Computed example of a mutant assay.
Amino acid sequence: MGLQEVWFVLIAVLFTGYFVLEGFDFGVGMLMPVLGRGRTETADTRRRVLLNTIGPVWDGNEVWLLTAGGAMFAAFPEWYATLFSGFYLPLLLILLGLIVRVVAIEYRGKIDDPTWRRRCDWGIVFGSWVPAVLWGVAFANIVRGVAIDENKQYIGGFFDLLNPYALLGGATTALVFALHGAVFIALKSADEVREDAVKLAARLAVPAVVVAGVFVVWTQLAYGKTWTWLVVGVAAAALLAVVALTRAEREGWAFVFTTVAIVGTVVLLFGSLFPNVMPSTLGDTLSLTIENASSSPYTLKVMTWAAVIVTPVVLIYQGWTYWVFRQRISTKHIPKSIGLSLGTK
């Protein structure tokens, strides 16, 4: 395996980590209107519980996206340039959603006013739903292929990206992230919040399995390879296991299998894509591949040494963070005062 293949795999791993970790962050934000309902005081306390389940880790989870984007820019600059220029509007909407969510989370507890907190809550919901949908749309289009000309420029329009396959991809990521988030809330909370999250996860499991199953099979039949059938089987089995486990209120194992399903889906997408990084619908010779889109061998070599040194440190630190903040949270742990940031002080 050459360095181009290595960095293609590493970028796939980074996006896998991002979708697994940021996926439940999105899910928590998406489900706030449902799991945060109640009287004004009760609703605010429940929403603070939801936010505190991701409070110590959500900003660290976003680092995976920054690293994936940086790795793509350095290892495959042509891929980065074509993707970010051609998909400018959807990626801008994703960025806008992420910014709104960050501001809403950080500033929600700064002003003791119900109207202010309600507006911040809607900012969190918006900043969770928009990226959750558009990431699926974007990656479905990358696998499907878009109109790339001889200058390595995308010559289609925004509405060309809203094809049936891509929209199904957006529905898949939205439903799977919502399910992933519901299971995570059940795993990290206690008392009535956990009970409601378990029930919601059980209701979300079936539609998530149906939509994701159709998307995965479509991907395999249209773009997959022989070996990716194994990945399809693993992802399908994981999703079916989630249905049974959520009904049995085994949220720990359910979270493991939603993670497996997300990992399997990302592996299927990148496996179907290889050796292309961005196929062209105008002809195979115009497609971007790991060879014609990559940086020089020297650049890849320097990046590889940097990754070997830095990556273990980052993984150990993030793993330690999850271990320290592994306890469940309930409404009893939330003080009456608003406090700072997420309301934990």
Rank of each mutant, 00 (worst) to 15 (best):
E291Y: 10
A212H: 09
A208H: 05
I99D: 09
A132G: 14
R328Y: 02
A178Y: 09
R39G: 15
E62K: 09
L134N: 06
L95A: 15
S287I: 01
K345E: 15
F325N: 11
D196I: 10
A178K: 04
Y317E: 00
W116G: 06
A132H: 07
M30L: 08
G127R: 01
V103I: 06
W122C: 10
E62F: 08
L239F: 11
R39E: 15
I94N: 08
G17S: 05
W129L: 15
A201G: 13
R203Y: 04
T259R: 14
V243D: 03
T259Y: 15
W64G: 07
V193T: 14
I142W: 06
F158H: 07
A261Y: 03
L286Q: 13
V198E: 15
M72S: 12
T228N: 12
W122E: 11
W320G: 03
V20S: 14
S337Y: 08
Y298K: 14
R48G: 12
G213V: 00
V28G: 10
E5I: 15
R117I: 10
Y80Q: 04
I185M: 14
K110N: 00
F8K: 08
G264T: 14
S280G: 08
A307E: 07
F19D: 01
A201M: 13
P164I: 07
I338T: 04
A182W: 05
V314Q: 02
T42K: 03
D44H: 10
E291G: 00
W7Y: 13
A81H: 11
E62Y: 08
A254I: 05
F159E: 13
K225C: 05
